[in-house]
Amino acid sequence: MLTQTTSRVLEPSDLNAALAVLDREPVTNAFVTSRVQVAGLDPWRLGGEMWGWYEDGMLTSLCYAGANLVPICAGPRAVRAFADRARRAGRRCSSIVGPADATSRLWRLLEPSWGPAREVRRRQPLMVTDRMSDRVAPDPHVRRVRKDEMDAIMPACVAMFTEEVGISPLAGDGGLLYQARVAELVGTGRSFARFDADGRVVFKAEIGAATDRACQIQGVWVAPEYRGRGLAAPGMAAVLRYALTDIAPVASLYVNDFNTAARRTYHRVGFEEAGAFMSVLF
């Protein structure tokens, strides 16, 4: 056990201590927890390093440093230590994302050396529910995407990502990593869609992160020509039913604060705001 207040890169032998920190906020930390439960703390398998902050020898905070930089249970002193380490390492991530307070502090410290960002989304309400609403009936046409439907779901995923993030996920490596991620979600039964009579996707969403305590819905999208027809709320209700029945007792998502239509839809389905995330996009 360390006897001083310090930060360091965690090793595979630190797994139980890291999981104990993650378990303090199972909903907020679902994304990182799901990765750690599968990959452990080996950087190659995890897709990045896990940094730890120690207070008087006890691990109290984490920061995932991979494709995203994610502060976890991080107070001001931990954030400062993580910012110092991130500055020394140089920017390798495509975004900083996490609880709004810690992420805002982290970005203030990193912006002079890492800025400017392509976009900063300062408040993205975290919405949570553990039950179905009786206000919206699930769409019976929304179902799990089959493995032989990759050619149909992939264009919808690319369109959603491009619309949401502002850049195509096919840039850089030609989309190999993104296609692999979509295939993983389809293969594990966590990709859902409604198809029209011609086999085109008209609504889709995924359960992107899943632990035994919480899961996170992502990638909610309605084809532009079908918007305004009332598909989003029943579609979300269907995905939520799958999430709560098959995946975890609590479902969450986070949404841009300026997306008032989506926030209304999620409220109708039964989600309530329980905090806020922040994203810095490069």
Rank of each mutant, 00 (worst) to 15 (best):
E206G: 01
G189W: 03
I167D: 10
L170S: 04
G187H: 09
L170H: 03
G187C: 09
F192Y: 14
L170A: 08
A183H: 08
F195V: 04
G199Y: 11
V165Y: 15
A171D: 13
A180L: 04
A197C: 10
F195P: 13
V201R: 01
V182A: 11
L177F: 00
F192P: 07
G172P: 02
R190I: 00
V186Y: 13
A183M: 08
V201I: 11
G199N: 07
E206F: 03
L177M: 05
A171Q: 13
L177A: 12
G174R: 02
R200G: 15
T188F: 02
G174C: 03
R181Q: 14
S191N: 07
D198K: 09
V201P: 10
G175N: 04
A205E: 02
D198R: 13
Q179E: 14
L185K: 13
F203R: 13
R190N: 06
E184N: 08
G172R: 02
S191E: 07
G199I: 06
D196G: 05
L170R: 13
S168V: 05
A183Q: 12
L176K: 08
R181F: 13
R181I: 04
G172N: 04
I167K: 10
R181G: 12
V202H: 03
A183S: 15
V165H: 01
S191L: 10
Q179D: 05
I207F: 03
L176E: 10
R190D: 02
F192C: 06
F203G: 09
A193W: 04
Y178I: 03
A193V: 11
Y178T: 03
E184Y: 15
Q179G: 14
I167Q: 09
K204R: 10
I207R: 00
V201E: 05
I207S: 02
A180Y: 00
A193T: 08
P169G: 05
T188H: 06
Y178M: 02
I167N: 09
G189N: 05
G189P: 06
G199P: 12
P169A: 02
V182S: 04
A180E: 07
R200A: 15
V186I: 13
E184C: 06
V182M: 12
F203C: 04
G166K: 03
V202M: 07
I167M: 11
G175K: 01
G172M: 03
G175R: 01
G187L: 10
V202I: 15
F192L: 04
S191P: 05
